[in-house]
Computed example of a mutant assay.
Amino acid sequence: MSDIIFHHYPISPFSEKIRLIFGFKQLKWKSVMIPSILPKPDVTALTGGYRRTPVMQIGADIYCDTALIADVLEKLAPTPSLYPAPVAGLSRTLAQWADTTLFWTAIAYTFQPSAISGILGDVTPEQMKAFSADRAAMRANAPRMSLPEATGQLKEYLRRLEDMLVGGSSFLLGEQASIADFSVYHALWFARRVPAVAGILDAYPNLLAWMDGIAAFGHHQFDKMGSEQALEIARSATPANAAEYAFVDTHGIALGERVSVMPTDYALDPVVGELAICSDNQIAVQRSDERAGVVLVHFPRVGFQMKRAD
């Protein structure tokens, strides 16, 4: 198997989700640090414009969105499973809620004025302005939750999660960890690491103990890699055989047609290429870049939209 190359930055919550899954599954990986804001020329060469973090690369295959990345890691290392059979569907559903509703509530709560320095560190006013402009562009017209609403809703979610752990359960859905644990954890991890706002968790001892247990999985073994080396690996590799995936037509678009794929909620930056995979749970486009070569960029079905390219 080609190396798992992970493009991320330290304070990215979704990256922490996958880093802990590497630890859970004891998978070795290569770490490529990327900027937290645009421009990201080396990432763009691989993805064609997808701007969210993280991105996972295996040879010339580029995987976007942590839901799909988790599925790929599950196939590479089926045990221990992220989707234990008794709770497979429930774990995916809870994970989707955590990656969306819980995450954005926690973000709205955490990004309050008193916490900014704890989130970004010692940044200059210019850097703060650039970060704010980048995130505003990502969110575009998506609604913003006020701090009072975020505080009240987050406390209610924390109470519900605490209740799931009453009785001594090791994980949210029983005695086996699942994708739900890693998705809920990363949203709360971001708040817990900022002293100015972490106190909201103090009233939930079971939840704090559970968080300590998830953190104990660690990130396993990784080596640092430069982005230029990652690009060279993509350029020298051949994408996976798309013919292995059964074609599931939901758009009336044939394989080989030029399409545009982008998220449905925020960071609406389209990736354009030839439709190579349109299966039950993923869409992939083939594209060519002068620096990355021919790559296959993969997206999950859920949370993304596809249309013919103009």
Rank of each mutant, 00 (worst) to 15 (best):
V184S: 03
V184M: 01
V184N: 01
H186M: 11
L188M: 01
L188S: 03
F190E: 02
F190D: 01
A191G: 12
R192L: 11
V194N: 08
V194H: 02
A196S: 08
V197W: 07
V197Y: 05
V197S: 00
V197N: 00
A198M: 03
A198T: 02
A198S: 08
G199L: 10
G199M: 10
I200G: 10
I200Y: 10
L201E: 07
D202Y: 08
D202L: 12
D202F: 12
A203Y: 07
A203L: 09
Y204L: 05
P205W: 03
N206F: 04
N206H: 14
L207R: 00
L207Y: 05
L207M: 03
L208P: 00
A209T: 12
A209S: 10
A209D: 12
A209Q: 08
W210R: 00
W210A: 02
M211F: 05
D212Q: 13
D212F: 12
D212A: 15
G213E: 13
I214Y: 02
A215R: 15
A216I: 04
A216V: 07
F217D: 01
F217Y: 15
G218W: 04
G218N: 01
H220R: 04
Q221N: 11
Q221Y: 12
Q221S: 10
F222E: 05
F222I: 06
F222Y: 14
M225A: 05
M225D: 04
G226R: 04
S227K: 15
S227W: 11
E228G: 07
Q229M: 09
A230M: 14
L231R: 00
L231M: 03
L231D: 01
E232A: 15
E232R: 12
I233A: 05
I233E: 06
R235G: 11
R235E: 07
S236I: 07
S236Y: 06
A237T: 12
A237C: 13
T238H: 05
P239Q: 02
P239S: 07
P239N: 03
A240P: 00
N241H: 13
N241V: 11
A242L: 08
A243F: 06
A243N: 10
E244L: 12
E244A: 15
Y245F: 15
Y245K: 02
A246E: 12
A246R: 08
A246L: 11
A246H: 04
F247V: 13
F247D: 06
F247S: 00
F247C: 01
V248N: 13
V248D: 11
D249R: 02
T250D: 09
H251R: 11
H251K: 09
G252L: 09
I253K: 00
I253Q: 00
A254K: 13
A254V: 04
L255K: 03
G256I: 12
G256R: 03
E257M: 10
E257R: 10
V259T: 03
V259F: 01
P263V: 13
P263S: 07
P263A: 06
T264F: 12
D265S: 15
Y266G: 00
Y266P: 00
L268T: 07
D269C: 05
D269G: 02
V271S: 02
V272K: 01
V272F: 01
V272S: 03
G273N: 07
G273F: 11
G273A: 03
E274V: 03
E274A: 14
L275H: 06
L275V: 09
A276Q: 01
C278P: 00
C278V: 10
S279G: 14
S279D: 13
D280H: 14
D280G: 14
D280K: 15
N281M: 08
N281E: 09
Q282P: 04
I283V: 15
I283Y: 15
